[in-house]
């Protein structure tokens, strides 16, 4: 197990009285992209929130890039260089695009961060003074992605960035994710429901079923889609 990826061991979490995920273990090499799939309500978002410390960790451990994060509050996890993109309400709707970016960028020079944003989504630079809430759904998702890139962190946790997006935007996001990994070696954990997107960008996949890992494999294997669909299909 590498010392600079994501290591989650036996992690349990949930809400008062109800464990949603039970003893989940996951690991990635540095620069690896892992897609976590599963139907709604199977604990995917809970997993990410528990890793960030936004939900109580009820046992197990979490390490990012070799640094212990199990007992850290969310802001301290973020300061380890872990970017988190929540599924809902992940932008400050009443703040401008620029303010949304500035809030996330604390170490690096803001100009450097903006250059990173420009490379991925140049249109955002024209919209810096616009309120984030006035962007379209797809543009908001791109701003979210841009914000994670602007931070320049080592690890990214992304919760269903493709939800409700049109195919062209999804393609664009996939390109940006692959580019970021190639240039910065960012380790990523993508929670996804969009199977083609997940298999296109990830190196490996895992299926979460009722709070437990039901299956894992490499994205390149020919039967990957079939194995995942067995867990997802109607």
């Amino acid at each position: 197990m590498s010392a600079s990826g994501i290591e989650v061991q036996q992690l349990s979490s949930g809400y008062a009285g109800a464990k949603v995920i039970r003893e989940v273990s996951l690991a990635t090499a540095p620069g690896e992209i892992l897609a976590v799939l599963g139907k709604n309500g199977m604990g995917k978002s809970t997993l990410l929130k528990a890793m960030m410390g936004l939900l109580p960790r009820m046992g197990g451990s979490v390490r990012f890039a070799g640094r212990e994060a199990t007992r850290l509050p969310p802001y301290a996890v973020a300061r380890l260089g872990v970017g988190y993109v929540a599924q809902e309400k992940a932008l400050f709707q009443d703040l401008t695009v620029e303010e949304n970016l500035r809030l996330a960028v604390r170490r690096t020079d803001f100009e450097v961060a903006l250059a990173e944003v420009e490379r991925a989504f140049p249109f955002l630079l024209q919209r810096l003074k616009q309120r984030a809430g006035t962007l379209s759904g797809g543009e908001q998702k791109m701003l979210l992605m841009a914000r994670s890139l602007a931070v320049g962190g080592k690890v990214l946790l992304i919760d269903e960035i493709t939800e409700g997006l049109q195919p062209s935007v999804i393609d664009r996001l996939a390109g940006v994710i692959r580019d970021a990994r190639a240039r910065h070696g960012t380790t990523m954990l993508l929670v996804e429901q969009h199977l083609p997107f997940a298999l296109a960008v990830a190196d490996r996949w895992a299926v979460l079923d009722r709070g437990e890992i039901a299956d894992t494999g490499a994205a390149g294997e020919p039967d990957a889609a079939a194995r995942i669909l067995r867990h997802l299909s109607v």
């Binding site: 195919p167 999804i170 199977l195 298999l199 889609a225 079939a226 669909l229 997802l232 299909s233």
Partner: peptide, 25 residues
Amino acid sequence: EVVNSELVRQVYAGSGHAGIAHSAQ
């Protein structure tokens, strides 16, 4: 009707895009 509907499959797995064939059970 619903289970066999291609529309539903698209809505759910997002497989209307990128054309990854899947062999549902």
